[in-house]
């Protein structure tokens, strides 16, 4: 098994872990952590699966480089919204839907 395939499998597991975290955890900061784990998993799948025959591929590498920078911007925006929510309501979780 090449490193590419191994890390692609790890990426799939990380993505699933992140999704489960986003769905199950109420605390917003922890949700942001889980969201970042999801992103890392997707990046690993993208690069790892393209390199499963062991030869480096620059195209997915460049796309993931772009993705990492966008992910940090999304994280900062999510943190800004969380801080605003906390300043306005004093809560760190989202209210459940009434018809849930």
């Amino acid at each position: 098994m090449t490193s590419g395939l191994l890390f692609a499998l790890v990426g799939a597991a990380l993505f699933a872990l992140g999704v489960a975290g986003v769905v199950l955890i109420d605390h917003l900061l922890r949700r942001i952590l889980a969201f970042n784990l999801m992103g890392s998993g997707a990046f690993l799948v993208l690069v790892g699966l393209a390199q499963r025959n062991g030869v480096p591929d620059p195209v997915p590498q460049a796309m993931v480089l772009t993705g990492i920078v966008v992910a940090v911007a999304a994280t900062a925006l999510a943190l800004a919204l969380t801080r605003k929510l906390h300043a306005l309501t004093g809560r760190l979780d989202l209210p459940e839907d009434a018809d849930d």
Binding site: F7, N36, V47, V64, V72
Partner: peptide
Amino acid sequence: RLAAPDIGLAEAAIGAGLT
């Protein structure tokens, strides 16, 4: 390990550092 030093540099500086 995936022969992607560019992403490694960015991940260390952005993913671990700034985030």
